[in-house]
């Protein structure tokens, strides 16, 4: 249901005639988008700066820092992307949708950098070792699957692909993000040694975001049933 809103029909979200609440000035996203882009790239810029110009910035184990930071941002961007729809429904704002594609692509981007760090720093680009590792270790399997599943979503994130697939099919495909986020949290959970504080925190946030969707769907169905009942009487 979240994906439908990406269709080029903004009126669909706001009830006809309802006042537009808290709407920023028109055209503001034109300058806001580059800002979000720059903010999203800042964590990567910091890592690149650390590797090439300031090793102390990344601590005693720079490879581990790079893997942790990129993995964290991948999960965080996934959660932020999943927060867009609840934010819109609860606030009545429409503008968050304009940023969702970029946020989702950032999740994919940091996931790819995360994978590349593992492939290069940990596995030394050895295909046999990588294959064995993905096959043998459940937490790697799960993380790799999440990134694999994210790839078609990143590819079909353009307007052209929405048109080609058709809104409902595109929306169905992009519901994969729920499974992807769950796999991401599981990946994190399974890899930590003892202290699962952060995986639990991510899991709780994801549960809240997905739980809200279930609840909202239940409410919509009830409302529909009620309308149907009215129409018959």
């Amino acid at each position: 249901m979240m994906a439908l809103a990406d269709l080029p029909a903004p009126a669909r979200v706001r009830k006809p005639g309802a006042p537009r609440r808290g709407a920023p000035p028109p055209g503001w996203t034109r300058w806001a988008k580059p800002l979000v882009l720059a903010a999203g790239l800042a964590p990567l810029a910091r890592l690149v700066y650390g590797v090439f110009w300031n090793p102390d910035l990344l601590g005693a184990n720079p490879a581990e820092t790079i893997e942790h930071v990129t993995g964290d941002w991948c999960l965080q961007f996934l959660l932020i992307t999943l927060a867009v729809t609840p934010l819109r429904r609860l606030s009545g704002w429409n503008w968050p949708i304009k940023f969702r594609r970029m946020l989702g692509l950032f999740a994919f981007f940091y996931g790819v950098v995360h994978l590349l760090a593992y492939v290069g720093f940990d596995m030394l680009f050895d295909p046999a070792a990588i294959g064995k590792d993905i096959w043998k270790r459940p937490f790697v399997t799960v993380g790799f699957s999440a990134l694999l599943l994210m790839t078609p979503l990143a590819v079909t994130s353009t307007k052209g692909w929405v048109r080609r697939l058709g809104g409902p099919a595109w929306a169905r495909l992009h519901r994969l993000v729920y499974a992807i986020a769950a796999l991401g949290v599981l990946h994190y959970w399974w890899l930590v040694k003892r202290d699962i504080t952060w995986p639990v925190a991510y899991a709780a946030m994801l549960a809240a975001l997905l739980g809200w969707r279930l609840w909202a769907r239940g409410r919509r169905q009830k409302a529909q049933a009620a309308r149907f009942g009215e129409a018959r009487s």
């Binding site: 590797v51 005693a60 290069g120 030394l124 937490f139 890899l191």
Partner: peptide, 18 residues
């Protein structure tokens, strides 16, 4: 280790576990 290989190690602060 059940969750990672012990074949190689990263001699800190090296980036690569070579």
């Amino acid at each position: 280790h059940p969750r990672w290989s012990q074949k190689r190690e990263r001699l800190l602060p090296s980036l690569f576990a070579s």
